[in-house]
């Protein structure tokens, strides 16, 4: 069948296919924006689900502390070990703490935390809400006049938006520890001296944009995880699809936000 089509027809078909993929993408993006809008509106509607929000904060915070701590430590350690030779060549070993602090606070801490949370929290939310959708639990809430968006989505999105910045700060702290340990492999510095050297290089414009960025990361991770789960199709395999596409989309979104944030801070 395909063989018998002439090249022009075939090219046309391919264009149509691409166009419908684009349409699908735009449609999805529009839905996501509407979902975000609804989530934002529902935040301000009473009554607020304190209990569930706190529970979700606990879930988000507690479940990832070990993983993020370990990764942060290793990142600080590796970064120091690898930059040391280059800096030593210029006799600039004393610059290491400053360099580490800037790169960890501005970039590595937030991004590593966000990526781990995409895998850990985004996928969990996608799978959890996806299976609730597939087994009609979300419908069950809706028919008993309980707003599932407010109960399930708002609480989760708020939890990630609050907790991921905290986790990023925690990751920064642990990365400093890792860097300090690595410094002491070759030289010996006191922790106090190391931290003072690190902090003197940090400026307002390093810290605040990074914090804002992590808030945005938290928001999109929660939002995309919930969106994918909430819009899972019928059938059990869609739970896996929801979890998977939550991770992929959220990671992508994290990098896009990171890039935009870098551009914007550059202008400041």
């Amino acid at each position: 069948m395909q063989q018998s089509l002439n090249p022009i027809r075939r090219a046309k078909m391919r264009v149509t296919q691409k166009r419908s993929e684009l349409k699908q993408f735009l449609y999805e993006a529009g839905n996501l924006v509407a979902f975000a809008g609804q989530t934002f509106r529902e935040i301000f509607r009473r009554p607020f689900e304190w209990r569930e929000t706190l529970y979700q904060c606990y879930q988000v915070g507690y479940k990832s502390t070990f993983l993020i701590g370990l990764t942060g430590f290793i990142m600080g350690l590796v970064l120091t070990i690898q930059t040391r030779p280059s800096l030593a060549k210029f006799g600039a070993v004393s610059m290491i703490p400053g360099m580490i602090s800037v790169s960890v606070v501005r970039e590595i801490g937030p991004v590593i935390t966000a990526i781990i949370c995409c895998g850990n929290i985004g996928s969990r939310m996608g799978a959890e809400l996806g299976s609730m959708k597939v087994s009609e639990q979300i419908d069950a809430m809706e028919v008993s006049a309980i707003n599932p968006h407010r109960y399930l989505v708002v609480t989760r999105v708020l939890a990630t938006t609050l907790m991921i910045p905290l986790l990023a700060i925690y990751a920064d702290g642990i990365a400093f520890c890792g860097a300090y340990v690595a410094m002491n492999i070759h030289d010996s510095t006191t922790f106090r001296h190391f931290m003072v050297a690190a902090m003197t290089h940090l400026e307002f414009l390093d810290i605040v944009p990074a914090l804002v960025k992590t808030v945005l990361f938290g928001w999109v991770i929660g939002l995309i995880g919930c969106y994918k789960g909430y819009h899972a199709r019928r059938g059990t395999e869609s739970v896996g699809i929801a979890a998977n596409s939550a991770v992929v989309t959220a990671s992508l979104a994290v990098f896009v936000i990171d890039m935009l944030a870098a551009q914007i801070t550059d202008l400041l």
Binding site: E128, S131, M132, S135, E136, Q137, D139, A140, V143, S144
Partner: peptide
């Protein structure tokens, strides 16, 4: 209106 789902749809958490 009460609705009993075909698969019960209990909240499994």
């Amino acid at each position: 209106v009460g609705f009993l789902f075909q698969n019960a749809a209990l909240y499994d958490s």
